[in-house]
Amino acid sequence: MVKFDTLSIVIPVYNEARTIHQILDLLRELELVHDIGKEIILVDDCSTDGSSDTIRAYAARHPEMGLRLLEHTVNQGKGAALHTGIRVATGDYVIIQDADLEYDPEEYNLLIKPVMKGFADVVFGSRFMGGNPHRILFFWHSIGNNVLTFLSNMVTDLNLTDMETCYKLFRRDILQGLKLEEKRFGFEPEVTAKVARVKDVRVYEVGISYYGRTYAEGKKIGWRDGFRAIYCIIKYGLLGA
C-alpha cells in the first residue's frame, strides 16, 4: 500500500458566494480513507460578489479546517487560479475541485483507491463510465465532450472517456513539474497532454457522479471554450508545445 498522508484540494473560485459554503460543508464532513489529511486551498479569481469575504467568514467559523485563501487582484481565468493553487500545494497528491456543486467530494475515495493500491500516479474521474448518477443536460455539450476527448486521445494515445472532467487526481511532484500555461478552460487538454508525456506515468480512470448545472444555475463554460480546447489539443498534444 502506498504511503499517503495529505491530499491537497485546489478550488478555483469566481463569483460563488451563494454556494461556496455548501461545498465547504461537504469538505468539512468528508472522511478520507486511511485517515488521509486534507489541505484545502481556495483561489479567488477576482470575484465581484464578495466570494472572498464569504470564505473568510466561513474560515473564522471553522478554524479547524485550516482553509487557505489566495486572491487574484485581476481576473485571469480558471486555469490561472489553478496554477496559483497548485504552486503552493504541499500534499502528497493534488485534486481539483470546482466551487460549484456539480461533483461530490465523497467520491475522492474512489479516485484515491488505485493510488493507495500502488497502481496509479494520476486518476481521472469519468462522468461517462460506471453506474453513478448523471444529470441529463445539454445534448450538444455531451457531443462536444466526446469530440474533445476523442481528439485528445488521438494525440496523447490515452483511451480516456472524459478528458474534460474536473476531477483529476495527481501525484504532486508530477503536477508541479509540468510547465502549465493555459489561463482559462484550456487547462484540461493542456494538463492531459503534458501528463501523457511524463515518462512511465500510470494514468487510471474511475467512474464518478455528475450533478450538472444549467447556465441559469451558474454554469460558465461556453462554445468559445470548446474551440480553445481544440487549439490546446493541437498545440500541446499534436505539436508538443
Rank of each mutant, 00 (worst) to 15 (best):
I174L: 15
L137P: 00
C232D: 14
T54C: 15
L7V: 08
R56C: 03
T161P: 02
D104E: 14
C232R: 11
L137N: 03
M1A: 14
E188W: 13
N75H: 14
G222W: 09
K113L: 12
E181Q: 08
Y108D: 05
R197N: 11
T156N: 06
G212D: 12
K183A: 07
V13S: 00
R224N: 13
R213C: 00
Y211Q: 05
A229K: 13
T192M: 04
R224A: 10
G226Y: 15
V198F: 09
L239K: 09
M129E: 06
T54A: 15
D35W: 05
L32A: 09
L30I: 09
K183H: 15
I136G: 00
L70E: 14
E31Y: 03
Q22Y: 05
T84R: 15
V33I: 14
L160Y: 09
T73M: 07
L169P: 09
T6A: 03
T161C: 07
I9A: 07
G85N: 11
G125R: 05
H34E: 15
A193Q: 04
V94A: 06
G131W: 06
T156I: 01
V33N: 09
P105L: 12
K168V: 02
L26M: 06
D45I: 03
L24P: 03
R28W: 08
P114R: 06
L111F: 03
V155S: 04
L27N: 08
G226M: 14
T156D: 10
L160S: 07
I136S: 14
Y210F: 13
L67I: 12
T6F: 08
D45R: 07
G240E: 06
E39K: 06
G91D: 10
H134M: 08
S209L: 03
V191S: 15
D98Y: 01
F124E: 05
Q22I: 13
Y167P: 05
L110W: 14
D104W: 03
G237Q: 06
Y215M: 00
C46F: 14
E182M: 12
V115I: 14
R127E: 13
Y236V: 04
E31S: 10
G79A: 10
K113G: 02
I36Q: 07
D157V: 00
G207Q: 07
Q176W: 10
F124K: 03
